[in-house]
């Protein structure tokens, strides 16, 4: 009995961890190019609300995710223009984007004749694998019990890890994030790279928001992300800017969201307020531990040029 409760809560940690992973992986790509976008929560809401609207119009989840991701990327484009071209303070621009995205989602959600608050998606996703495989002990619910978006996110983690650390193009991105002047000298366009990767980050956040609204909750409410975007931002640091670590960390954070419920079933009572704060506590602790150990700091620290605007004229 207790085993199955534990197993089910682990499986649902994977579900709630997926939007965190999609948004966090996107932000990780952005940060590797040296741009910090604090606007994840806003892009998740802003992209997600349009993706959700799409899911109420058409049964295809792929279409909804594409639309949500596209809108998220457009929000990120604003940040890229301000941060890369106009070289404004990225913290200020990112926070303004949070406010804009939140306002946009609220406005879109409550205006129009058909309020999105009452709308429902036209379809919901089915697990990819058959009943037989889902009923396998342990791996059944954990590995074979999910819809295709979860597997897509695993694929994206593998792709990001390979791309960033095993290809020339990935090396170029990291060069832009670590030392843009040198990257510029060898002919890599710092501006274009940063624009592209900032928009990839927005797409991840928009997809994460869409999956959250159109699939997990199957409804839209004001402020439905409830801080998941901030958790996704924390994820990048907690994972030490490494995609595979992000996969594990996203599910740890997802599990913490569900843990209160699980513990209640098991007879223990830990207030959800405390559990909700845990991902942030863990991130601070990880950050302090890493910065206290020089060897770890070299390996798992932020890109050197993170949040530093680049210009050829000023060094």
């Amino acid at each position: 009995m207790n085993d199955s409760v534990l197993l089910l809560s682990l499986a649902s940690a994977i579900v709630i961890g997926t939007p965190i992973l999609l948004a966090g992986l996107g932000e990780m790509m952005t940060e590797h190019s040296g741009v910090m976008n604090l606007g994840v929560e806003g892009m998740m809401l802003g992209g997600g609300v349009v993706g959700f609207w799409m899911s109420t119009q058409h049964p295809s989840m792929a279409l909804a995710l594409a639309v949500g991701g596209g809108v998220g990327a457009l929000f990120a484009l604003i940040h890229a223009y301000l941060a890369v071209t106009l070289r404004v303070n990225q913290i200020v621009s990112g926070l303004a984007l949070v406010i804009t995205g939140t306002g946009f989602a609220g406005f879109v959600g409550s205006s129009n004749d058909s309020a999105l608050i009452y709308a429902r998606p036209q379809s919901s996703l089915e697990p990819v694998f058959g009943e037989g495989m889902q009923e396998l002990p342990l791996v059944g619910p954990l590995v074979f019990g999910h819809d295709w978006v979860v597997y897509l996110s695993w694929l994206l983690v593998a792709a990001a890890a390979f791309w960033l650390f095993r290809t020339r193009a990935g090396l170029a991105v990291r060069a832009v994030g670590e030392d843009p002047a040198t990257a510029d000298t060898v002919g890599i366009s710092v501006g274009v790279t940063r624009y592209v990767y900032t928009m990839i980050g927005g797409a991840g956040a928009g997809m994460g928001g869409t999956y959250l609204m159109a699939e997990i909750f199957a409804t839209y409410q004001h402020g439905i992300t409830a801080g998941l975007g901030w958790i996704a931002f924390a994820l990048v640091t907690f994972a030490g800017w490494r995609p595979w670590r992000a996969l594990v960390a996203a599910y740890v954070f997802g599990a913490l969201r569900n843990l209160g419920f699980t513990l209640q079933i098991l007879g223990a009572s830990v207030p959800s307020d405390v559990l909700n704060a845990l991902p942030f506590v863990l991130t601070i602790v990880a950050l302090i531990i890493i910065s206290a150990r020089p060897a770890a700091a070299r390996k798992y620290s932020a890109p050197s040029a993170l949040a530093v605007p680049y210009s050829r004229e000023i060094r």
């Binding site: 901030w230 931002f233 405390v274 704060a277 506590v281 601070i284 302090i288």
Partner: peptide, 25 residues
């Protein structure tokens, strides 16, 4: 030399958790 951007940001949500705990839980 711990990055203060992330630590101060994270502490917001910890503070929120403390306040919610004191009233709601």
């Amino acid at each position: 030399n711990t990055d203060e951007v992330i630590s101060t940001l994270m502490l917001n949500f910890v503070a929120l958790g403390i306040m919610n705990y004191l009233i709601f839980s």
